[in-house]
Every structure is written in structure tokens, then in C-alpha cells.
């Protein structure tokens, strides 16, 4: 793998780690399998892209995109808690609704950002190549978000949220509204996913309504890969695991895509198959590790 490809994988790993941290909040912290992320990821991209085209400051568009993701996530949560729709189904309903909404947001299925200012523009003035600048910028944003997340999960409300995913009966008996925790958690999660979508759109120069397909799988793959590598004994380790998992996932894909066995060359359309194989390996890995007594 060339340096260029490696930096590209790092860039992807960092920016998608923000999304994977959102998936970690719903799937692991809240035990709420939320599939709306396949819709909120392109929602973030769409909102950010269309606002940039309309002349809004690119940084502000990221903030608004995050907010849009939080609102969509909040609605998923309310579908579940107030209307008593199964969490999995609530996420699916939101996901397909967002497909239409995202096209409405942009007025078309795709929005190109060529020639427009993005959050990278002010830094390009320093004369750093974009393929180096982007991963550095994403790493900084990711670290800030990871620190906030670890801090948050140790606050009063964070503890209550973690307990909600673990034992609702106990949480209610201790005076916490589990509905409120689910609302905050799923909104927070989808805010991060939309933020990630907005950053991806700005770095690749376009937003597309189909760019969200498979987001949940990539997110879960990162979470599970991270757990396989670092046992999630503490919140800090779990968050670190998600980030490492996300980076490894992107590197594994880049490596696999560069493989050529005889006439067989992997193509991007083989990505889903590779992801499935990777997640399967990651899922059985903790059992193997126990057997051979490996401790990390």
C-alpha cells in the first residue's frame, strides 16, 4: 500500500470513527439498535452541502447539519418511547423517510461542491497538500469529540444513560426517566453521525443521497473490531477501541482492494462481502483470545 493510499485510509478511518462513536452510543451504551444512521449520515452531508451552495459559512453548515441529525435521531427515539414502536423498526422508518427528505433538502439527489469554500479552504492557505491536511484536520476533530464523549459518559446524565442500556428497572427505581435518556442518547448519536456525513461531503466535494447506504454496517464493524482488539473494560478503552476499529477497518478495506490474486481483482462492489467476513472474524476473535489466554 502506498503512502497516499495509507493516508487516505487514515482520513477515512478518522472521519468515519465519528460516525462509529455515534453507533457505539446507541448499540453499546443504550442497547438501542438504531438504523436511522443510514439516513442521518447523508442528511448531514445534504444539509451541509446545500447550505454551502447557498453561501453559508462552511463551519456553520457543519453545526446545522449536526443539529439536523440530532432532530432526526430525536424523532426516532420518540417513535420508540412515545408511540411504542419497536426500536429497530423506528430506526428503519426514520431511515427510509430520510431518503425522501434528503432529496427534498437538496432539491436533487446530488449536490456538487466543486469551486465552493469548505472547512478546508482556510487551512489550504498554509500550503499543506490536501491529502495530508485532511487526515490531520479529521484527527483533531475526532480527538475533541472523543474527549467530550468520554467526559459526558462520566457525568450524572452519562452514568444514567449507561445504566439505561444495562438495566432499565434499576434506572427507573433510581428516579431516572429512561425515555429521556433514550431521547438524549439517540439524538446525540445521530448528531455525531450527521456531523461525520457533513465532513465527508466537504472532503469528497459532493453530497449524494445514496452515500448513506451501509453506514450502519461500517459503524458496527468498527465497534466490533475495536472490541475484539481492546476489551472494553472502561469507557475510555471502549471509545479508543471504536477509533482503532474504524481506522483498521478502512486500512483492511484499502489493503483488500489492492489485492490481486491471479485474474481475481477485488472491486469496490466486493466491499460488503469483505465487511461481512471482517465482522465475522472480529466476532469470533474474543472467544479465540480467551482460549489461547491472550490479554490485551
Amino acid at each position: 500500500m502506498s503512502l497516499y493510499a495509507f493516508l487516505g485510509a487514515l482520513e477515512q478511518g478518522f472521519v468515519f470513527a465519528i460516525m462509529a462513536l455515534g453507533v457505539y452510543i446507541t448499540f453499546r451504551v443504550l442497547d438501542f439498535p438504531d438504523l436511522s444512521v443510514d439516513g442521518t449520515f447523508p442528511l448531514g452531508a445534504a444539509v451541509s452541502a446545500i447550505l454551502i451552495v447557498k453561501g453559508v459559512n462552511p463551519f456553520i453548515t457543519v453545526a446545522i447539519a449536526t443539529l439536523a441529525g440530532m432532530i432526526a435521531g430525536g424523532i426516532t427515539a420518540l417513535l420508540n418511547t412515545k408511540l411504542k414502536i419497536l426500536n429497530l423498526l423506528a430506526g428503519i422508518l426514520m431511515m427510509i423517510a430520510l431518503y425522501s427528505i434528503n432529496i427534498r433538502v437538496m432539491g436533487q439527489p446530488t449536490t456538487a461542491l466543486l469551486g465552493y469554500d469548505t472547512i478546508f479552504t482556510p487551512f489550504e492557505a498554509f500550503g499543506i497538500e490536501k491529502y495530508i491536511l485532511t487526515p490531520i484536520l479529521f484527527a483533531i476533530i475526532l480527538i475533541i469529540i472523543a474527549v467530550i464523549l468520554v467526559w459526558f459518559l462520566h457525568t450524572d446524565i452519562g452514568l444514567a444513560m449507561r445504566a439505561t442500556g444495562n438495566n432499565m428497572k434499576m434506572v427507573k427505581a433510581q428516579g431516572v426517566s429512561t425515555n429521556r435518556m433514550i431521547l438524549f442518547g439517540v439524538a446525540f448519536s445521530n448528531g455525531l453521525v450527521a456531523l461525520s456525513g457533513a465532513l465527508v461531503a466537504q472532503s469528497q466535494g459532493s453530497a449524494d443521497v445514496n452515500m448513506g447506504i451501509g453506514t450502519i454496517v461500517a459503524g458496527l464493524a468498527s465497534v466490533i473490531l475495536g472490541e475484539a482488539i481492546i476489551q472494553d473494560r472502561t469507557v475510555f478503552r471502549a471509545v479508543l477501541g471504536v477509533i482503532i476499529g474504524s481506522v483498521l477497518y478502512r486500512i483492511a478495506i484499502a489493503v483488500a482492494l489492492s489485492f490481486k490474486i491471479g485474474a481475481l481483482q477485488m472491486t469496490p462492489s466486493d466491499l460488503n462481502l469483505m465487511t461481512s467476513v471482517l465482522v465475522t472474524i472480529a466476532l469470533i476473535f474474543p472467544g479465540i483470545r480467551k482460549k489461547i489466554g491472550l490479554k490485551i
Binding site: D156, I157, L159
Partner: peptide, 15 residues
């Protein structure tokens, strides 16, 4: 820490 906040509002104070 969760139990000690029973009946109180929970926000962003350290748990």
C-alpha cells in the same frame, strides 16, 4: 453515584 442522585435533577456534573 446514580443512587445518590435519586430524586434530584441529573445534568453534567461529574458522576
Amino acid at each position: 453515584a446514580i443512587a445518590q442522585k435519586r430524586g434530584e435533577k441529573r445534568w453534567f456534573a461529574k458522576g
